[in-house]
């Protein structure tokens, strides 16, 4: 198996240029999904979807970046992407086996197998994967599987001018990310922290292969504070089904006996 690869997105370095969005669309030859003017800061992409595999979020905060800084405003940027979770909701829920884990540890949807049942969409705790209406299949970031196979890095990371998007071996990225947090803390940006860098930080997904460095609550970036692969809590649902099966069987037998007797009397 090849080394486990992923992204470390350092949002403190992002300048909101959207080169990653453009590079992704161009390399993967994705069609547009509407040109909108939303009024949400500089974000006219809105959300990840079937044809949008990178999305830069623009957060306007009425507080300074660091305590003591001048002004009461700071502007945060963050390039969002499929997290390629260690426990992926889409993969575990896929009934056809179309969604697989590749040799790089990434989660990949095989377009020739997907039958467009739509179950992965409601199973993604991050709202990443989606179905394109005209196409009928589910799509999401492939971690540029075709480029990895040709020993190239993903298009978004390649195009990022500030190295906010870093691609590499996950173990190495984690180390780099921790050093970066330490450095930021030294510089006085105490709010910096890692999001989903390992299983201890995010037990619900058991860690993300595309993790982030954030400086505010995850909700500000439209990231869930405690995402969990739906399969984990769903154990209770299987238990409930067992009770339901038993109850239904007893009710059927009871009706057969009681109803049968009532007719006889």
């Amino acid at each position: 198996m090849a080394a486990q690869k992923g992204f470390f997105t350092d949002t403190t370095l992002c300048i909101g240029c959207k080169a990653c969005e453009v590079a992704c669309k161009q390399w993967n030859q994705l069609p547009d999904d509407g040109f909108l003017f939303t009024g949400m800061s500089y974000d006219n992409t809105v959300h990840l979807g079937a044809s949008t595999w990178r999305h830069v979020a623009f957060v306007e905060r009425p507080v300074p970046m660091k305590p003591g800084n001048d002004g009461a405003f700071s502007w945060l940027f963050s390039s969002d992407v499929c997290k390629h979770c260690a426990r992926a909701g889409c993969l575990e829920s896929c009934p056809t086996g179309a969604i697989i884990r590749t040799e790089y540890g990434s989660v990949y949807v095989q377009p020739d197998v997907c039958n467009g049942c739509g179950y992965c969409i409601v199973n993604c705790p991050f709202g990443v994967i989606d179905r394109r209406e005209e196409d009928g299949r589910a799509w999401k970031c492939t971690l540029c599987y075709d480029r990895l196979r040709a020993d190239m890095q993903p298009a978004c990371a390649k195009s990022c001018p500030t190295e906010s998007i870093q691609f590499g071996e996950i173990a190495e990225l984690r180390e780099r990310a921790e050093k970066r947090v330490e450095k930021l803390h030294e510089q006085g940006l105490n709010s910096a922290y890692l999001y989903g860098a390992n299983a201890a930080q995010q037990p619900g997904t058991e860690g993300l292969n595309a993790f982030f460095l954030l400086v505010d609550k995850p909700e500000m970036y439209n990231l869930p504070p405690n995402p969990t692969v739906p399969t984990k809590p769903a154990k209770a649902a299987w238990g409930s089904m067992a009770v339901g099966v038993l109850g239904l069987a007893l009710a059927a037998i009871g009706s057969a006996l009681l109803g049968g007797r009532e007719r006889a009397s």
Binding site: H47, I121, V122, G127, D130, E219, M220, Y221, N222
Partner: peptide, 13 residues
């Protein structure tokens, strides 16, 4: 906080 009150999840199709 939310992100401009935009949905977090993609809704069922």
């Amino acid at each position: 906080p939310t992100y401009y009150d935009r949905p977090l999840l993609n809704e069922s199709v």
